[in-house]
Amino acid sequence: MTHHAAGTGPGPVTDHAGRPLRALNPFDAARDADAVPAAAAPGEAPGARRPRGGFWSRPVVRVVGGAVLPLLLLGVWHAVTTGGLVPPYQLPTPLSVWDAALDLVARGQLQTHVAISVQRVLVGFVVGAAAGLVLGSLVGLSRAADVLLAPLLGGVRAVPSLAWVPLLILWLKIGEESKVTLIAIGAFFPVYTTVAAALRHVDPHLVEAGRAFGLRGVRLLQTVQLPAVLPSVLSGLRLALAQAWLFLVAAELIASSMGLGFLLNDSQQNGRVDRILLAIVLLALLGKLSDSLVALGERALLRRYA
């Protein structure tokens, strides 16, 4: 039936372990809305509706539960380093990493590293995702573009990210352009692939209905096709953002004088394991934070459209 079209896409949104992320799935959003009239079961007080899955679905449990393992890890880290189980030149204590952070902040360096890395990721992500959206729409909607473009782009996608670095440096020098371009390449493919695939599978019945009511070209794309593939576009964007952070470090490790990747490389040269750990923790925090922000936007959009 028609509402299948809303869920057309690569399937549920999953986390890194492949488990579906409940709140982010268009399918769950649909079930939530359906459940509203049914929720007022006889004999149940209003507001007593418990979220599906009981205990583990409570918002508080989800926030606190998500912090349990990282805090535990921090505790173990602290215990093994202060207890002398691991020598500090291999694994410094959490406190010394914190001190390294304060030290770099005092010198005004950490802010610069973080800011430049975030800027590179954002610019590269926006450029790559926009290009992915345009070319993905083209290849997904036009037979001719599919025949002409898809094989070439498939080949380009197969090139490992690091293979581009020598060429980019040769052509664009060791400036911002080379790094942003590499990140854009990384962000491009998840968006391009998901959008092209999803557009090919939009319910042809819906598209025909749109055509029957006089919609064509860009208006048909706006009114029927893009809303129908919105869930896939959004999960493509999240993948692209993760990929952008990945490519950032690749770019900064090799040729840069600023940024978190530079901090990693530089600290390796100087034997500053505390700063290496600091950079890794920062990458984890920034990556998770940006993903959560996009996830919030995704949720709002899906509530409106799916």
């Binding site: 028609t2 809303a6 029957a212 009511f213 799916a306």
Partner: peptide, 28 residues
């Protein structure tokens, strides 16, 4: 081509799932 003077209703409703009924009717 698609003629303005005709309108079709299909065997399946073929409504856009992300639009309300009123918004779907307005499409026509």
């Amino acid at each position: 081509g698609i003629d303005r003077r005709t309108a079709v209703a299909f065997q399946e409703p073929r409504l856009l799932p992300w639009r309300t009924l009123a918004q779907n009717v307005a499409l026509g």
